[in-house]
Design a protein around this nucleic acid. Structure first.
Length: 792
RNA sequence: GGGCGUUUAGCUCAGUUGGUUUAGAGCAACUGGUUUACACCCAGUAGGUCCAAGGUUCGAGUCCUUGAGCGCCCACCA
């Protein structure tokens, strides 16, 4: 046993064991038939790693407590880390960082930059996770642009096609005119914006009164296809079925009725354009209106816009309003604040544009998604509702094609002659149709060799949603038994905001591709917030970079802070909680030193608990240990690491340190070795159990103490592998039936001394107990512990 | 407008399926303590109309109804 330095030099300690774990490859997965598997499908973070903060630390640490617990429990844990480096988020990051003009850069040049940033980001993350003690198997890393991920992702797509879940169609779709790509419903976000409600006059053919409509989007005037009023509205009742003339553009549109039109909103008369919003789209579909699609994919007005052709949306808005004003048709402008759907990556208001895109059928299968959701265990339970609500709000099929550079290509070619879609062969993946030839180089239908590649790439989620069945590919198919066992994974941990994307899409893909749920359990974490409860953000400048946090406080104390949030709840950054973690580490060191001190010169045999010689105090603490162990286990089993930590703190600080250690000091120091031996046995056993229970939360300090104090007497090479403590059996509980009275007596005397300002170590002559206690049994002990000459 | 979460000590939060005449913890405050593991400690004290109002019950922090504040999500965007 080695004496420990209680100065707590965490950076030295952390580096030492980080190196050791790496050298010994403890976290590398090796298949072992005898051990049960535990597979974790952890979120592949985006590589834009220049803003890592306590929130990232929190959510990954919380899942990792469970990982370490399972590994100690004897599970064969597979915990690889991926990086999500393809698709729009990466492109946006690179564009911003290098201030790229997309028109002036070639695709290969751009992709090269993306890959460069990707590698950099992955490196930053790896360093952070290592420093934080995230026990990832780095030998099995993947990235979503890597060949293996492309292969799985393309396989999934072809499989979807074969199963009828995939289709391509020309229709109005959600479009981002900044990113110049189709987007999905899940990529939208709300944003409040100030705008103007413009009252615009339409004329009727018969030359009656002006018809005033109110709109926030006057630039769409040239796309107006109808006016709508409610038939209950007396003002417009007579107009229904008649026609109105669109100002400036001068063509006629029908005036129709709809119950959806609210009489008291705007002017009660609304214009429908193709397309201004989702409501327009629905009316257009239901009432089979003519199309006058006006906005192009480049976000500009097309020829239908006549003299406004080529103007951007905002330019056209300005110009049209000016012309309306000139003509006297702009009757009124109201300032309003309204909520817009914007693209979450760039804040651009979403447009509806007619375009040919690829879709996965989801809107018609809500019942299946809900059923699958029920088959998965959600922690906390309430997070299942977030999922359910999202499924119920689905309106669109999942548009998975993106008109971008850096992503997984569709493994598809189109025959120019007969229009047949030619898919790559499943065993020849991955392919890039813009580079690779289609199978047999000819259309299988019409034998034409005029074949064009599909140039779209996939939505980044279309790849990351494959991770449940990508993980097993990392191990290869050689071991068929293992391959089969590796799906579905046991745990998916992630934050609540990607339930509607990563989790939902994973369920969709696993349903189509494998007919099964994608994971058995899901734990949902909250956000890390600043001390005022605000999100960490660059703009607010309200966080310290994560590497600075680590070098300032150490990994173990920060991990301790991360246990502070109840599962699924947000957690405010709290320096005091970090300090509490630091104190716990130091207290563990000090307690270990007490142990070392009392084993000095003692022959270290008979360390196993000998139930024949245990005294009531020993039995009591071991029994309390049993109780705490059960609660700590229950906490980890339910992904409630916070409960585990609270129970553990209570046991270690209050019961073990403040009571038990005080109770046995006199025995350890006494020459009466028959009493010292069971105390030593119990001390050794209970302390080691505490250390093991803290290990998932404070991995570094626990390994330090384990290696320096216990390793010579214990079989385990590391505290982290298969070392979870077991319940102590055969305790003679009949001996401690009245022990709570003894504890009450101790409290009573401590209080007496404290209130009378007597030091605990100062001996007092007499004390008469109020607590009724078997004095014959306990008075000797109490006199020793609390220094009393005569006790009654 | 709809939904979800949240509201408990000065602060940060626990409080399992309703159940002991006294609602917990940590931090902060206060009173003490050289107690040879630890002052990064120990003993103790004080501090609460459990957001509000109603209801169910022998019994409500916990269940129901209504309302308010805060946070998030969704819809409306004429």
């Amino acid at each position: 046993m080695e004496k420990l330095n209680t100065d707590y030099n965490f950076s030295k300690i952390e580096k030492r064991w980080q190196k050791f774990w790496k050298q010994e490859k403890f976290f590398e997965f090796k298949y072992d038939k005898k051990k049960p598997l535990y597979i974790v499908d952890t979120p592949p973070p985006y590589v834009s790693a220049d803003h890592l903060h306590a929130g990232h630390i929190m959510s990954y640490a919380q899942a990792e407590f469970i990982v370490r617990y399972k590994r100690m429990k004897g599970f064969n844990v597979f915990y690889p880390m991926g990086f999500d480096d393809n698709g729009l988020p990466t492109e946006r990051f690179v564009e911003k960082k290098y201030k790229i003009n997309k028109a002036k850069i070639t695709k290969p040049e751009f992709v090269k930059l993306c890959l460069k940033e990707t590698r950099k980001g992955a490196k930053t993350y790896k360093k952070l996770w290592d420093n934080l003690g995230i026990s990832v198997d780095w030998s099995k890393t993947y990235s979503t642009i890597s060949p293996i991920a492309q292969k799985v992702s393309q396989w999934s797509l072809i499989d979807l096609w074969e199963k009828g879940g995939l289709y391509q169609k020309q229709m109005p779709i959600l479009w981002c005119s900044t990113c110049r790509t189709a987007i999905a419903q899940a990529d939208l976000e709300d944003k409040e914006e100030k705008s103007k409600l413009n009252h615009i006059a339409f004329k009727t053919k018969t030359g009656g009164k002006d018809l005033i409509i109110a709109t926030t989007r006057p630039e769409l005037l040239g796309a107006c296809v109808a006016l709508y009023a409610n038939k209950k509205d007396k003002r417009y009742k007579n107009l229904i079925g008649k026609k109105a003339i669109v100002p400036i553009f001068g063509y006629e549109v029908p005036i129709k009725q709809s119950d959806q039109v609210q009489v008291d909103k705007g002017t009660g008369l609304m214009m429908v354009c193709t397309w201004g919003d989702i409501d327009d789209l629905e009316k257009w579909r239901n009432d089979k209106l003519t199309t006058r699609a006006l906005i192009e994919e480049n976000g500009k007005l097309n020829a239908l816009g006549k003299k406004y052709k080529g103007l951007s949306i905002m330019e056209a808005r300005k110009a049209i309003l000016k012309d309306l004003e000139k003509a006297g048709d702009l009757k009124k402008q109201e300032k309003i604040t309204h909520t817009l759907n914007v693209h979450e990556r760039c804040d651009t208001p979403m447009e509806l544009v007619k375009s040919k895109q690829w879709f996965i059928k989801i809107a018609s299968k809500k019942k299946i998604w809900l059923d699958f959701g029920k088959k998965i265990n959600w922690f906390p339970k309430s997070s299942k509702k977030i999922y359910r609500d999202w499924v119920n709000s689905l309106k669109w099929d999942w548009c998975i094609s993106r008109q971008r550079f850096f992503g997984v290509p569709f493994p598809i070619w189109h025959c120019q002659k007969c229009g047949k879609k030619i898919f790559a062969k499943k065993n020849e993946l991955p392919v890039d149709p813009t580079v690779d030839e289609p199978p047999n180089k000819k259309c299988p239908e019409c034998k034409s060799s005029k074949i064009k590649p599909e140039t779209d790439v996939m939505d980044t989620w279309a790849t990351s949603a494959c991770t449940p069945f990508l993980l097993r590919e990392l191990m290869g198919k050689k071991n068929k038994e293992l391959y089969k066992k590796m799906f579905p994974p046991d745990l998916r941990p992630n934050a609540f905001e990607i339930i509607r994307t990563w989790d939902f899409y994973s369920i969709v893909k696993s349903y189509y591709n494998l007919g099964a749920i994608p994971f058995k359990n899901i734990m949902i974490s909250g956000h890390g917030l600043d001390q005022h409860g605000r999100k960490f953000s660059k703009r607010l400048n309200n966080y310290k970079p994560s590497d600075q946090l680590l070098s300032e406080y150490g990994a173990d104390p920060i991990r301790y802070w991360a246990t502070g949030a109840t599962l699924g709840q947000n957690l405010k950054f709290n320096e005091k909680e970090i300090k509490k973690g630091r104190k716990t580490a130091i207290k563990l060191l000090n307690a270990a030193n007490l142990l070392v001190l009392n084993f000095k010169g003692v022959r270290l045999k008979n360390l196993a608990l000998d139930h024949k010689i245990l005294e009531p105090t020993d039995i009591w603490i071991l029994n309390e240990l049993n109780k705490s162990l059960k609660k700590v286990e229950k906490g980890f089993e339910n992904y409630s690491y916070a409960d585990s930590k609270n129970e553990l703190d209570n046991f270690f600080w209050s019961k073990f340190a403040d009571y038990y250690l005080e109770f046995i000091k006199h025995r350890l120091n006494s020459p009466d070795s028959s009493s010292a031996l069971p105390a030593r046995q119990t001390l050794y056993y209970a302390y080691l159990a505490i250390l093991k229970m803290y290990a998932p939360i404070l991995p570094f300090i626990c390994e330090e103490i384990y290696q320096k104090v216990f390793r010579n007497f214990e079989k385990g090479k590391s505290i982290h592998i298969g070392q979870w403590p077991k319940k102590i059996k055969k305790l003679k509980l009949s001996k401690i039936k009245d022990f709570d009275k003894f504890l009450a007596a101790v409290d009573e005397i401590r209080k007496y001394k404290s209130e009378n300002k007597i030091s605990m170590s100062q001996e007092i002559d007499h004390y008469k107990l109020k607590t009724s206690l078997d004095l014959e049994k306990y008075s000797r002990l109490i006199k020793k512990i609390l220094k009393i000459k005569n006790l009654k």
